[in-house]
């Protein structure tokens, strides 16, 4: 996702100044996605160029402009909400790749990699849960939904790590990594 849709969604509520957009964006995502004001104005000027937002003609005492959504901006936003996020939109899963490499790289204890990651992920889960206990069920609904999403994702990661651990434990002892490896290195692998 880009900042673009975040700003379009906020402008759907009401016309806003750039700094208002930034504040509202952070309020809705609980500061998990900090924006700087420069990013906001760069994005706004692009949206303006593409005809998705327009200036209302009002401005504050510092000459800051108020923006509102155009009809095509509204259509763009509606289309975005109606389109499910696909996994292609997400970055590659570094952890899965790391564990996969740990399994196939001589001298690496894949179970230790899994265990260390699980402890770290559970610790992260504790921190998220703590933030949740401080949130107000009514006032912070948007933030709570974002937190829950992070919590469920971390939980899924722990479950996958547990599953991987079991798979690794069941794996028969691995034959020598490559015939060319020195014998003392092979002992490290085992």
């Amino acid at each position: 996702m880009s900042i673009k849709y975040g700003l379009l969604a906020l402008l759907e509520r009401a016309p806003m100044y750039g700094y208002q957009l930034r504040a509202e964006f952070e309020r809705s995502t609980g500061a998990t996605w900090p924006l700087n004001i420069g990013q906001v104005y760069t994005t706004l000027s692009r949206l303006h160029r593409d005809g998705l937002v327009e200036e209302t003609g009002e401005s504050d005492e510092q000459g800051k402009v108020v923006y509102r959504l155009t009809d095509s901006g509204h259509a763009e936003l509606t289309g975005w909400f109606a389109t499910p996020v696909t996994s292609d939109d997400r970055p590659r899963d570094e952890l899965a790749i790391k564990v996969a490499l740990a399994v196939t790289t001589p001298g690496v204890d894949a179970r230790a990699v899994v265990q260390a990651q699980r402890t770290a992920t559970v610790r992260h889960l504790q921190e998220l849960t703590r933030l949740k206990t401080r949130a107000d069920e009514d006032a912070d609904l948007a933030w709570l939904l974002v937190l829950d999403s992070m919590i469920f994702r971390a939980e899924a990661e722990v479950r996958w790590l547990d599953h991987s651990e079991t798979r690794l434990a069941r794996r028969p002892p691995r034959p020598a990594a490559t015939p060319a490896v020195e014998s003392d290195e092979q002992e490290v692998v085992q």
Binding site: V122, Q126, I151
Partner: peptide, 23 residues
């Protein structure tokens, strides 16, 4: 369940009757 354990101050991981790690 990790999501439930996360409410705790401290979490220990038990595997085959041994504590293998703790937060």
């Amino acid at each position: 369940e990790a999501r439930h354990a996360a409410w705790a101050d401290e979490i220990v991981f038990l595997r085959d009757g041994r504590i293998v790690d703790e937060t």
